[in-house]
Amino acid sequence: MKILLIGEYSRLHNSLKEGLQELGHQVTLLGFTDGFKNYPVDFPLVKKWDRGWRKKLKLAVLRCTGFDMTSYFTYLQFLKYQKHCQGFDVVQLINEHSFFCSYGFETKILKYLFQHNKKVFLLSCGDDYSYVNYNFEHPDNPSIVQPYINGKIADKDFENVLKFRRKSFQKLHDFIYQNIQGVMATDIDYHIPLQHHPKYLGLIPNPIHWSKFPKSDIKISDRIIIFHGINSGSYYKKGNDFFEKALQIIQQKYPEKVSVLVTRDVPYQDYINRYNQAHIVLDQLYGHDQGYNALEAMAKGKVVFTNASEVFEKHYHITEKVAVNALPDVDYLVAQLSFLIENPEEIKTIGKRARAFIEKEHDYLKIAEKYLKIW
């Protein structure tokens, strides 16, 4: 098959591409490189007029005329690649807003893709109309909406989520769903809002190229190393405020037993290299299922504090812990960390289970086959 993957979040489409290519298919990836993470893309798009004085000028033009310069320049970039975006058996959009354009330019690009390719599918991956609105309607469901509702995030800092509640995004959502063959969720958090939608084709777990992470036994000498990687743009959405408070207590409680490594906004390759030496990785709160950073850390046999709720355990029939379900509760996080620090053999045990879980449920070749079956 000839396949075009649009967009990249946390290396999802790169891992899928690798699996599909190993199975003998021709795969092209077009999109943004996911900001500072800088993932590889065959045909890269770059956000322009999105910082400094150009951004201020863009916003002034937008207020006065309704014309979005960043969207216009993204559309021009797409036109440059247009001849490479036709004649595919399958096109897959990573999100309802894959090009980050205003409604007019986004639909121009999408219309071309719909008209010049055989089939188009959509992933529910990251924030979208269904996920965001479901969580505002169900505030008790653990999600990124909770810290916003609790007043931790200002409207301007939550704009990339709130935009999906606007009428223009409902219109975009409806337009996409009228033209796609179907939508797939990449984890349980996105599965829940779509369960009864007529175009929902099911949950396909994130693909992990686990063979890139050689299996090795965790070695613990005099100190347990805890890694905390921070993305400033999602500081409160990931629950980093709770993690930082818990780490302060842990460092005071176990000054001779732990070492804490913290990074902020580093590229993907730098990020993974820095946490290689860690035993415990602090990932995120507010959800049911793991994202990419957690899954790759689990593939390396780390103990990851992440989303691993009872809903997740029930879905995968898990009876023994493969990750620590992180909750927005400092005392709880301190207790969980303390237990592992005082029982280092448990770190090794959970790490081995985590690796086995990734090999069983997230193998990139098995996941690629699941996509092929649905397509």
Rank of each mutant, 00 (worst) to 15 (best):
D174K: 01
F67R: 12
R165Y: 06
L295F: 05
S130G: 01
L57W: 03
A185W: 10
N307A: 13
F114T: 14
C64A: 06
G151T: 11
Q269R: 07
K373H: 15
T306E: 13
K58Q: 13
H25V: 13
G7R: 11
F43L: 13
A278S: 12
I188A: 02
E22R: 15
D68R: 03
S10K: 08
F242E: 09
F121L: 03
G301S: 14
S211W: 02
N14C: 01
E313F: 01
K80L: 14
Q290Y: 11
Q181K: 08
F43Y: 15
Q284L: 07
L203T: 08
L337S: 13
C125V: 14
Y148C: 08
Q336A: 12
D331K: 10
F227V: 11
D187I: 13
G239T: 10
K48Y: 15
F78S: 08
L62V: 02
A323R: 06
H209F: 07
L337I: 11
L20W: 05
I318Q: 10
A154H: 09
K118V: 15
N135P: 08
L247A: 03
F136M: 12
I176D: 02
N276H: 08
V303W: 07
F357V: 10
I144C: 00
D363Y: 00
K314A: 09
V266I: 15
M69G: 09
N179K: 00
L5S: 01
I176V: 13
V311A: 14
M184Y: 07
D329Y: 00
I250Y: 02
D363V: 02
K17Q: 11
F357K: 11
K219D: 11
Y75M: 10
L295V: 06
G182W: 00
N14T: 08
I220M: 04
K321W: 04
D68W: 07
N240W: 09
V281P: 00
P198F: 00
L340E: 06
V262H: 01
Y200N: 05
A308M: 06
V330E: 05
I3W: 01
T70V: 15
E320P: 03
D68L: 01
N117Q: 08
K171F: 04
K119H: 11
Y72A: 03
L203R: 02
G24H: 09
A323K: 13
Q248H: 08
H362P: 03
Y112L: 12
I318E: 08
K171H: 08
F164E: 06
H279R: 07
N276C: 10
S102V: 04
P255R: 10
K366Q: 07
H13C: 11
K80A: 04
R54N: 12
N307S: 00
R166F: 01
H25F: 10
K215A: 15
Y190P: 11
F43M: 11
S221C: 13
Y316G: 03
I144L: 06
L122C: 01
K56C: 07
I225L: 14
Q26M: 01
W49L: 07
R54H: 13
K48W: 13
E342Q: 12
D222A: 15
D329Q: 04
E244Q: 09
K253W: 00
Q146T: 14
K314S: 08
K2M: 14
R51P: 09
F339R: 04
L29R: 06
K245H: 11
R223Q: 15
F100T: 12
D265M: 05
I249L: 00
L76E: 09
P44I: 14
N307M: 04
A308F: 09
